[in-house]
Simulated assay, not measured.
Amino acid sequence: MSKCHNYNLKPAKQYASPGQQKQRSALITSQSRENGNIQLKCALEKLKVLSPLFVVRVIAVAMAIHFIVVTVMWFVVFITLLCNNEVPVSSREGYCGPCPDNWICHRNNCYQFFNDNKTWNESQASCLSQNSSLLKIYSKEEQEFLKLVKSYHWIGLVHTEANGSWQWEDGSSLSSNQLTLVEMPSGSCALYASSFKAYTEDCSNPNTYICMKTAM
C-alpha cells in the first residue's frame, strides 16, 4: 500500500513579481490537486483494509446472536419436557383428578404399589383402610401402563366356590379382554404378573399388592 504524506504549501514570498506569483499560484494549485488525489487514494486503500474486517465482525455478531437464540430455544424445550415428566404416569387424554401423595394417577384412577408382603385378605384390608380396593383390570386399553409392571402383586380377583368362576371384588366376572389367567394346581386368589397376565396363588401366601380407587 502506498505511503500517505501530508503536504504543507509554503506561502509565496512577499515581494515576488506578478509573473513569479502566477507561476507559484499554478504550482500551489497543482500540488493541492496532487495532495488531494494522494489522500483519496489513501482513504480508498484504508477502506479496502477495513472492509474485510467489518464483514468478519458482522458475521461474528450474527453468529453470536444465532447461538444465543438457539440456546434459549433448547432451554425452553428442556424445561417443558422436564415439567411434563414430573408425574410418573398420568392421563394424557383429558382430566385426571387429584390423588393422595405418592399415588399414580392414570385416566382418572389412582394406583398405589405397596412393597410390604401380606396375605390376600390382609392386602384387601389394607386397601379398604385407605378407601380403595385391590387392583381391578377394566380393560387393556384404559390401563395400558400396567403392562410394564414387573414382579407379582395381589389383585382383587378371587375364585368363588359357589359357581366355580373367577370374580372381582365388586362381584363382576372375569372376561377374556381384561387379562389372561394362568391357573396353577392350587390357589383361589390371583397375582398380577405383567403384560395383563395373572397367576393363581394360595391366598395365605404373602405377596406385595396394588390398591386402586377413583380419583376425586
Rank of each mutant, 00 (worst) to 15 (best):
V89L: 12
S90D: 04
E93P: 01
I79Q: 15
C96F: 01
W103N: 06
P98Q: 14
I65C: 03
Y95T: 13
K118S: 11
C83N: 12
P98G: 09
W103L: 14
V69S: 10
S90M: 11
P98F: 10
V70F: 02
L128S: 03
I137H: 07
S123D: 07
S133W: 09
P100Y: 00
N115G: 02
V69L: 09
D101L: 11
S139T: 15
C96G: 15
I68D: 00
F114P: 01
N109C: 08
M73N: 12
G97T: 04
Q130G: 00
C83F: 09
H66D: 03
F114M: 01
Y95K: 09
I68L: 08
I79G: 11
N109W: 13
C110G: 11
F114G: 00
W74D: 14
V69Y: 14
N85V: 03
I137T: 04
D116H: 10
M63Y: 07
L135Q: 02
N109V: 05
E86N: 02
F67Q: 14
L135Y: 08
S132M: 05
I79M: 10
N109I: 06
E122M: 03
N109T: 14
N102A: 15
S139Y: 00
V77R: 09
D116A: 06
N109M: 13
C83L: 13
D101V: 11
S91I: 02
N117A: 15
Q124L: 10
K136N: 07
G94D: 12
T80M: 03
W120M: 04
L81I: 04
V61N: 00
C105H: 05
Q124I: 05
S91E: 07
I68Y: 01
R107N: 15
W120R: 02
N131Q: 13
T119Y: 12
P100M: 01
S129V: 05
N85L: 06
V69R: 12
V77Y: 13
W103V: 14
Y138N: 14
P100A: 06
R92T: 13
V87R: 10
G97P: 15
N85Y: 05
V89A: 13
T119Q: 04
N121T: 07
K136L: 14
L82N: 03
S126D: 06
A125S: 12
Y95D: 04
N108V: 07
N117S: 11
M73L: 11
D116M: 06
G97S: 09
M73A: 08
D116R: 04
S139N: 15
Y111C: 07
R92I: 10
A64D: 07
A64W: 06
C99Q: 12
W120V: 01
W103K: 15
S132Q: 09
S133N: 11
W120N: 02
S90Y: 15
L134M: 12
E86P: 02
N117Q: 08
F75A: 15
I79D: 01
C83D: 08
A125R: 15
V76G: 01
K118V: 04
N109K: 05
N108C: 08
N102K: 12
A64M: 13
V87F: 02
C110D: 09
N115T: 10
C96A: 06
F67Y: 13
W103Q: 05
V70D: 02
Y138C: 02
H106C: 02
R92H: 14
S126Q: 04
V69C: 09
